[in-house]
Write a protein that binds this DNA or RNA. Sequence first.
DNA 1: TATGAATGAGAGTTCATTCAT
DNA 2: TATGAATGAACTCTCATTCAT
Lengths: 216, 216, 216, 216
Amino acid sequence: MTDDVPQPPRWQRRAESRPQEVLEAALAVFVERGYTAASLDEVARRAGVSKGTLYLYFDNKAELFKAVIRQSLVSNMDEARTLAAQHSGDNWELLTLVLREFTHKVVMSPLSGIPKLILGEAGNFPEITRFYFDEVVQRGRTLIQGILERGIAAGEFRAVDTEEAWRIVIAPLVLSMLWKHTFQPFEPQGLDFERHLRTHLDLLRHGLASAASHQE
Amino acid sequence: MTDDVPQPPRWQRRAESRPQEVLEAALAVFVERGYTAASLDEVARRAGVSKGTLYLYFDNKAELFKAVIRQSLVSNMDEARTLAAQHSGDNWELLTLVLREFTHKVVMSPLSGIPKLILGEAGNFPEITRFYFDEVVQRGRTLIQGILERGIAAGEFRAVDTEEAWRIVIAPLVLSMLWKHTFQPFEPQGLDFERHLRTHLDLLRHGLASAASHQE
Amino acid sequence: MTDDVPQPPRWQRRAESRPQEVLEAALAVFVERGYTAASLDEVARRAGVSKGTLYLYFDNKAELFKAVIRQSLVSNMDEARTLAAQHSGDNWELLTLVLREFTHKVVMSPLSGIPKLILGEAGNFPEITRFYFDEVVQRGRTLIQGILERGIAAGEFRAVDTEEAWRIVIAPLVLSMLWKHTFQPFEPQGLDFERHLRTHLDLLRHGLASAASHQE
Amino acid sequence: MTDDVPQPPRWQRRAESRPQEVLEAALAVFVERGYTAASLDEVARRAGVSKGTLYLYFDNKAELFKAVIRQSLVSNMDEARTLAAQHSGDNWELLTLVLREFTHKVVMSPLSGIPKLILGEAGNFPEITRFYFDEVVQRGRTLIQGILERGIAAGEFRAVDTEEAWRIVIAPLVLSMLWKHTFQPFEPQGLDFERHLRTHLDLLRHGLASAASHQE
DNA sequence: TATGAATGAGAGTTCATTCAT
DNA sequence: TATGAATGAACTCTCATTCAT
């Protein structure tokens, strides 16, 4: 009756690329909806696979969530490690470099959704929260606090309370990430992360500058 | 038919206080679990009422959530308005006052859970987010940005980019609130909000200080 | 437009009778389908409740299953205990009484479906099987083996191997129960449990009779 | 298109042995889990093939199940037929022989799992049940009942109700098979089928013995 | 012939919501 | 006003079955 029109195959075998695609879709849905409200149906749809396929790669929803976090932490950590190794010039330059790199590699990328996720689900996933706390927060603290302390020791910076100051240094960056995923839709022009960073660095430079360094 | 003999009531009538108790319980549960994972069973249990009773006061879960946000905004707004009206001395003093009051009245109170909720559930409640954005964020921005601009105009502050700087001024306070509800359980000693604020103000004062004001 | 015809209520509150009704429906469905193939949808339908209602009374499917077993055990055990206490006449009379009562109270009742369930699903529920083994099988063994041993000691019965004989005494009753729920539909006339028991007792009496008791 | 160069085969061809291995694995899994709870994944794993391969030999799960039953019936039937042909001496000897052979060839072999399966799935596979009923049960009945009737006619046995007695003769053997797959794990010493059979035969011999045969 | 990645229907379970009491 | 038993839709997860390779 009808011609033997070749049909497109119902699906393809793509065992290697699938998990990555799923993780990306999952990150997006989790960030938009939050862990509990995220439905695996939607994750599957966005990843272009069936619901059952998710379970070929991840044991369950919680494991998928953890995998999302974990993989993004790997990226995060790689960034951090790279940066820490680059302390070439003085400490202010290093601090500038670190914050700038972080802005470009994390704040402006999809990874910026992770803090929102951690925030929203900390109560329901204590072990994830602890993992994030140990692996990301504490490392970030060590990095920043170290720069501040060395800068103070070198007479570059004023003697600020570094136990608290590290949090103040990163606060605007964290807020940027959250802002982006929360209020972005209501601001027509969007966030200008570069300009935001410049302003932060400007305030910070004057805030940290020692009397000795005022001459420059 | 029968005489109107006063019977001991089978339930306590507490029509006025009930909703308030429910709202408090709901805030706590929402903050702990997030909107979606929060169960009305638990809200009811903590409020000491039955699940059905919740529906006498709130149409549904979303309305209860909105009511929680809305009522906290009332407190927030009152604080903000009160503070804004008190600008007695110079702008630095006003800024200090505003941040200190906010720290005590919001950051250190249960209200600090609200931002976490908003940030965590923004994707599922656009109208709530918009409401919060208009009523809280924009007002906060107006308040802080105004102080900065007047300070700059008066020669008190350096000419910073106030479009961005207001967010940097707020960031550490927001971060404190989020930190408290996220990582507090993992830090034995807890956050010292006073000390945190002092450090922030210290950095900020030097960061904003104009050449003219350097004499002091 | 239409008359205000009173509608039958959508459901009724019957908190006390519900669990019993559910258990009866569950027993029937479990026996027909087996544990795994039994769907809670069907249990709910037969009990005349919604699926969700099942969870008001039983934590989950396994607990419902256990409750079915447990409740039937109560009857079983009570029968057994009552009978054991009544050993008035000689041991053959007691054995006759026990088997006859069991036939009427268990074999011929819906409870007869339980052994089929246990035997069919033992592999998936070790703890249920163990429970049944300890509470039902062992008690039955103690009861029957005790009668045999006392009969032998009294010279009523031949010296048979009681460690094995108790199982042989029980076997036809168990087989009846299984037969009833397995092959009954294929036999038009059905099983005559009375006649079956009579034949069993006839064979057993001669099989156990000692030389001394042959006179009668 | 291309020459038919013989390539080394990518997989071993074992077309003849494969189905048999699958059937054995399937019997084991079905007996352990029951039909519904048995997963084809596990059958495949135990048979050492992939899940897809199962479908090269069997249309679907139900057909695999039927094949398992069917093939075991063939074995069963072969046993039965062999035994029925051997009625050499008197009827008691024949009965003894039949029960002993059945014990060794069926009760003590993996085939003993079949009754459990039939039992558990009778409700879901009526045609299997009927098949088993016609081919196994009825034949067994004919065999045993025939022996009993000829023994009675020959004055060897008492005039028992053979319509029922055949089931009583079989019952302990059936129960042994079920016991083995149900309570075996809970009994450290395991079942002694020989001893069990001896006791059964002992009771049965006295139960069936006619006055005439008492002399021996 | 053989594989195993991919599918999708159906299961158990939860929970916001309703309503007889 | 207050209750909580009852509902049913929606979710996560499993697994028999299909099919590109």
